[in-house]
Structure formats: C-alpha cells, structure tokens
Amino acid sequence: MSAAAARGPLLLLRMVAYEFRKRIQFRAGFVVREVLNGTVEPLVMLFVYTALYGSAASLAGGATEGDEVALGGWTYREIIQYVAGLVVVRKLVFHNRALDLAPEIFEGRVTKYLVMPFRFFVLLQGRFLQFTLMQLAVATLAWCIGYALAPEYWLVPVSAAATLQAVTLVLMGSYCCFLVFFILNAMAFWLDVIWSLLVMAWFVIGFTGGALVPVSQMPEGMYEVLSYGFPYWMITAPIELLMGRLGAGDFLHGAALVGGQLLALDLLRRWVWRRGLARYVGAGM
C-alpha cells in the first residue's frame, strides 16, 4: 500500500480521537448532549400512550393485561417495548446539531482545508464515526439500565441476527441523516442562515420515521408512502425487527431501499459541494 493510500485511514483515526477529546471537554455538557439526548420525547409519549390505552381499555369494558386492547395493530405491551426501543435507537441517529460545516463556509474558513493534501469530507466522516462509536456505547448502556430496571417491559431482541439487522439499518439510516445534514450545511454557500433547514429536516425525519407514533400504527395511506423513506427503516422498522414483527425478508427489502437512497444522497452531496465550491471565494459572506 502506498504512503498516500495509508494516509487516509490514519487521518480518519486521528480525527476520531480528536472528536472524542472535544466531546468530553465539558462533563455536564457531555452527559446532557450525549447520554440524555433523545430520551425526553419517548418518555412523554409513554405517558400519552398509557392514557390512551387506558381510555381504550375502559371503552372495551375494563380489559386487563390478559386480554389487551390493540390500537392500530399494537397492544399496550408492544407500544411500551416500542418506546423503549426508541430510547435506544434514536441515540444512534446522527443529530442535526452534530455538524458545524455551515459556519466554516459562511466565515470563509473552508480555504484552509482545501489546501490540505486530503479530501475535506474525510474530516467530517471522522465526526460521523466518532458519533456512532460513542452513541453505540451510550445506547448499549441505556439498554442495560432499562433492562435492569424493568426487564418485563423492556425491549429484548428476538435474536442476535435481528439485532445485527436492526443495527445495520439504523446505521445506514444514520449515514443518510449525516449526508442530508451535510447537504443542508452546504447550503451556506448560497444562504445566510441554515439552522432552520436543519431543525425542519430533523422534525420531518423524526415524524416520518416514527419518533412520535410508529409508522405502522399510522393510517394505511401514510404507512404506504412513508415505508419507502429511509427514516422509516431507521426508526420504526429496526424496532419492529428487534420485536420480531418484521423478518429477514423485510430487512433485505429495507436495506436495498436505504442503500439506494444513501447512494443518491451521496451523489447529491458531491454535486452540491462542487457547485458550492465554484461559488466560494474564501472571504466569508
């Protein structure tokens, strides 16, 4: 292997170490941003679902746990497991606040990266890899704590294969998010402010993925449409795989869909970056 070819992976490793150092600088901030991130909404939805299923049970004449009411094909126990799955899965999803490319473009600081003897995108991939490694550890810890506290309600994967399939889909989806956020950050070549685009994308990805309501619990028409998008395969589908509601065939179908979208997003990312650089004058906006 030539020295130039070896430089890429080595640089990636250095970037990962550097990103880790940055993240653990403020300890309280670390706990808030990395550990507690993505736990609030599922917790609130747990209470909402408890009230909703309570109402449904009283309508059904006070159904007990033995004869649970199903709403949209989901029993209360399954919904609890889904919410538990959300806590773990959402930690792995690349966050809209995790990239800070737009200020670099806006203030004309990209120049220093362009003169370096490697692709700028490697630096950002290092950020993605650091995020994923850290969140894998945090998600594992969150799962262990949840299982220790409430083993009878917590989401326990049906098999090792299902776990592998679910993690694969989540990480592919997370990389799609990374590409989406890169593209939106690159809009700083044209726009003055882009944070609202990032927040908007985060809302849309969360809702269409099932962060509030499982996509398969939504009305049929919505489910039909949303099940083509990578957000569904990044949030709802992996949890359903872990629960055993979906199987290996669904995984392959989802992986093909997400793989196609990932490639399309990567092509778009390259195109947007090239077009943006053509406009870039290195003096800031």
Binding site: A51, A56, L59, L71, G72, V213, M218
Partner: peptide, 14 residues
C-alpha cells in the same frame, strides 16, 4: 392519528 385509532370521538387522553 392517536385519537383516530379508536374510531373518531371515542378515545380520550386523561
């Protein structure tokens, strides 16, 4: 979506 799950006008939240 949530209210629609039990048929319109049937479910309530708290």
């Amino acid at each position: 979506i949530l209210y629609g799950l039990g048929g319109e006008g049937r479910l309530n939240l708290g």
